[in-house]
């Protein structure tokens, strides 16, 4: 909403954006329809095919949704030429949306994660959670959210990170959860890199797996991003927050547990946070500690039922990241100044 609003205020009539899982694309489609703007969404191909009804949802709100890489942009065509069977990635979809905005009149690019203003907008989550807990005289010992580009994690954790940094609550444990297949915070390099595949964005100081890394097609499509929010990266670098990584099957196991106990079917992305919350709670049971655990359930899984089906069919590979070999492979590349 704020991104659409401020763009409209500035006289912009059309927004172009990327979407991974489809949540951000749906949200921006609604927001632009609210402010009578046009909207074009580049949706990562793997997700586009896994969840066809996301596209419908965006269409209901008047947005155009294209499978990315598409033939509409030069960066999309280049990617398709390189690998016609590519699964796409957030990095590629961002390139397409940026190029679209740069080549169309009165069009701006809107990013759904990573950047500071997006993290700021999302901080309503943590601010409100902190208020709610305060109303019952509680404060979390552990704060957990999944990390794709970092926006829901930032939104959940930043208010608590603030309390930690200012010494109000120095012991709060802040955990970001990412897929083992795309372990940006746990295995990435802290360096300047592009936010997109084609290198159209400014460089950002962040943890990165390399802007040309196309993560395996895990079902948590929203977590398939090579980089991370610079502020989130810095907090992890400084030890204010920490990160863990999980395999697909253990994530879906937790999603099922949560669905059966709470009646809410979570998105695979959100289930990363749930799995870690369960793990922390089980650890407490072992040690006998009582902890208040706050986690963000970042989305429902109603469009992800095909991935639940694959889980039940035993068809979910536990995608992994061969970090030593990748390090060896990168060390041989010519250094680019």
């Amino acid at each position: 909403m704020p991104q659409a609003y401020y763009n409209r205020e500035a006289g912009i009539e059309r927004l172009a954006t990327e979407t991974g899982a489809g949540q951000w694309g749906s949200a921006l489609a609604f927001a632009t329809s609210h402010f009578e703007m046009d909207c074009t969404v580049y949706m990562v191909r793997a997700s586009y095919e896994q969840k066809p009804y996301r596209k419908m949802m965006m269409q209901v709100w008047g947005a155009d949704c294209h499978s990315s890489p598409s033939t509409l942009t030069a960066s999309g065509r280049a990617m398709l030429e390189k690998d016609p069977d590519t699964t796409g990635s957030l990095g590629i979809a961002i390139s397409e949306a940026v190029e679209d905005a740069a080549t169309h009149a009165n069009t701006n690019y809107a990013l759904g994660s990573v950047l500071n203003h997006v993290c700021l907008h999302q901080s309503v989550i943590g601010l409100e959670a902190r208020e709610q807990l305060a109303s019952v005289d509680d404060y979390p010992d552990v704060v957990i959210a999944c990390v794709g580009g970092g926006s829901n994690f930032a939104g959940t954790a930043f208010p608590f990170a603030g309390d930690k940094l200012t010494g109000k609550h120095p012991d709060v444990d802040i955990i970001g959860v990412e897929p083992a297949a795309c372990p940006t915070l746990t295995k990435g390099l802290y360096a300047y890199d592009y936010g997109d595949e084609a290198g159209l964005t400014p460089m950002l100081m962040m943890y990165t797996l390399g802007h040309d890394f196309v993560p395996p097609a895990i079902h948590a499509g929203g977590l398939r991003y090579h980089g991370d929010s610079p502020i989130v990266s810095k907090l992890v670098k400084d030890g204010v927050a920490r990160a863990v990584s999980l395999y697909q099957n253990e994530v879906f196991e937790a999603a099922q547990t949560f669905a059966r106990t709470e009646g809410i079917i979570p998105a695979p992305e959100a289930a990363h946070a749930i799995r870690t919350a369960i793990d922390v709670a089980l650890e407490c049971r072992k040690t006998g500690e009582a902890k208040t655990i706050l986690f963000n359930n970042s989305g429902h899984g109603h469009f992800d039922l095909a991935s639940y089906e694959a889980y039940y069919a035993g068809n979910l590979p536990d995608y992994d990241y061969p970090e030593e070999l990748i390090r060896d492979a990168l060390s041989r590349l010519p250094k680019v100044a």
Partner: peptide, 13 residues
């Protein structure tokens, strides 16, 4: 578990 390399920079457990 064993890690199996499945592509350029990709693997499965």
């Amino acid at each position: 578990y064993l890690r199996v390399v499945t592509g350029y920079g990709t693997a499965q457990r």
